[in-house]
């Protein structure tokens, strides 16, 4: 196991390096730059600014300087758009926001999706099952960019219960709607995944053995069926974790939460190179981390898997 962690970490570094280089090259090959605007700057001023940020250097040197900054000072560079902020500042401001609502999204989708899927499987072909399946289909018909405005319409405009957006330091009333909007479709997927894998597990031979042992149904479900039934859910979670934690562009845009999600697209549109690099690296790193965690979790759940 330790061996695997070391091995995976060793592979992660070159992976991230390739990610940096590819992103850098792609970014800089797109036309325009951070300082192109409808009213172009005088050439001399532009040259001065580019010199200040080192954008006048050849690309390989910029990549090297960027990596050097990360390795020596953990400095991910300045933002060219939010000129009083570094990428570290932006992540420090945006990540806690998305982490907070992301954590709630994960809690909600698991707390609702898993039990619902299990109950639906245990009570297959009863009204509870139909209700759970119906709910998950409905949730798929309402993706978050539709859910968001509908929630605002209901809870802000009609009922007047919740503020229609903003973050305000993460007070609960600002968090409810983003969490629901983002969690619903994941919840639906998890319900369906759990249900189908639970059905499969309940039909498996070792569950039959457990029944023959004379174990109570509760023990059979919790002790024998739950873990294997959660395997597909766990592999589904890894990318979802990363996506939810780094923030949803749509949710951040609709609810103006100030989370990290908006920076993904905005940084690309603005050619805010270092911010783009920063969020790409963050996502890449988290993806590698969560894949590792999921694999470790797999090993814990299923002793047949050895690393």
């Amino acid at each position: 196991m330790l061996n695997m962690i070391i091995r995976r970490t060793a592979v992660a570094l070159p992976t991230l390096l390739i990610l940096v280089i590819v992103t850098f090259v792609l970014m800089h090959s797109a036309p325009g730059g951070p300082f192109t605007s409808e009213k172009p700057l005088p050439p001399q001023v532009l040259a001065n600014i580019e010199a200040k940020y080192g954008l006048n250097e050849p690309l390989y040197k910029q990549i090297f300087m960027y990596l050097q900054g990360i390795v020596t000072e953990l400095d991910f560079g300045p933002s060219y758009v939010y000129k009083d902020r570094t990428v570290n500042d932006i992540i420090a401001q945006g990540l806690p926001v998305t982490l907070t609502y992301g954590a709630w999204v994960i809690v909600v989708m698991l707390a609702v999706g898993v039990p619902l899927g299990m109950i639906a499987a245990i009570k297959q072909n009863t009204w509870i099952d139909y209700l759970a399946v119906g709910f998950s289909i409905l949730a798929d018909l309402l993706p978050n960019f539709i859910m968001g405005p509908i929630l605002i319409l209901i809870f802000t405009l009609w009922l007047g219960w919740l503020p229609g957006g903003g973050w305000n330091g993460g007070q609960w009333e600002y968090m409810i709607m983003p969490v629901i909007a983002l969690a619903t479709s994941y919840m639906a997927s998890i319900t369906r995944l759990t249900r189908s894998s639970m059905l499969e597990v309940l039909r498996s031979n070792f569950i039959r053995t457990a029944r023959a042992k004379g174990l109570p149904e509760r023990t059979i479900i919790l002790r024998h069926a739950m873990k294997p039934a959660l395997m597909p859910v766990i592999s589904y979670l890894s990318p979802v974790f990363v996506y939810v934690i780094t923030g949803s562009f749509i949710v951040d845009a609709i609810f103006s939460t100030g989370g990290l999600g908006t920076y993904f697209t905005n940084a690309a549109f603005n050619r805010d190179y270092a911010v783009m690099m920063g969020v790409t690296l963050l996502t890449g790193g988290l993806t590698i981390l969560f894949n590792l965690l999921v694999d470790l979790l797999y090993g814990w759940i299923d002793p047949q898997i050895r690393y």
């Binding site: 319409l153 229609g164 957006g165 103006s256």
Partner: peptide, 15 residues
């Protein structure tokens, strides 16, 4: 307030 979606802004104005 920064509201990226103008329609959401309209709803919040109406609210």
């Amino acid at each position: 307030l920064v509201i990226n979606d103008e329609n959401v802004a309209l709803t919040r104005y109406m609210a």
